[in-house]
């Protein structure tokens, strides 16, 4: 069976931060089983989701990712016993922060994919790709970087209003 190839106006870049033991192996299994999914994901391998610093996610968005996937072992199955629990807590807090600074949380997906879940890897990667494709490119961070809005110029009416409101 050949998947029907469609041409989309926009192909998002998805960066996947995964742990070696579960999700990386799960993605390998998807390969061994010859399952098919969109070619948008780029995998960055970590020993454990516990190693994933939220800064990496910010940096990925800045550097052109339109969606980020973070995936590791199921709770209780961490190769390092508890790394994924620390990750879970850290990302719970981090999501709130992202939300606060205005990043659409639909661009960020956390999931658990075990070494035996090649099918689930395909599902997660496909779903996120399709979702982000529909959302269009992620501009906010990249523009920040390229346009150097940190210059201090008060160049929008909102900023001007805010500036004037300072007593």
């Amino acid at each position: 069976m050949h998947a029907h190839k469609e041409n989309h106006a926009f192909e998002p870049k998805i960066v996947a931060f995964v742990c070696t033991w579960c999700t990386y192996a799960g993605a390998d299994l998807a390969g061994t089983a010859r399952l098919q999914y969109p070619a948008n994901t780029r995998v960055v391998k970590f020993p454990c989701t516990g190693r994933i610093d939220p800064v990496f996610i910010l940096r990925a968005f800045q550097k052109g990712a339109d969606g980020v996937l973070v995936s590791g072992c199921h709770p209780g199955d961490c190769h390092y016993m508890a790394g994924n629990f620390h990750a879970r807590r850290r990302f719970a807090a981090f999501r709130a922060l992202l939300d606060f600074i205005g990043v659409d949380l639909n661009r960020l997906q956390f999931s658990w994919v075990s070494a035996a879940e090649g099918g689930k890897w395909v599902e997660v990667a496909t779903e996120l790709t399709e979702r982000v494709r529909a959302m269009g490119p992620m501009r906010e961070f990249r523009e920040l970087e390229t346009e150097e809005q940190w210059s201090g110029a008060i160049d929008t009416p909102e900023l001007q209003a805010a500036y004037e409101a300072i007593p």
Binding site: C48, R51, F56, Y80, G83, H86
Partner: peptide
């Protein structure tokens, strides 16, 4: 064990996991 949880948690960025340094990932 080499999980790197310490590194992602260190507020002063003073602990680094060999083989998975911030530099390498960045």
């Amino acid at each position: 064990g080499g999980c790197g949880t310490c590194q992602a948690s260190c507020p002063s960025k003073s602990v680094e996991l060999d083989g998975y340094t911030d530099e390498q990932i960045m």
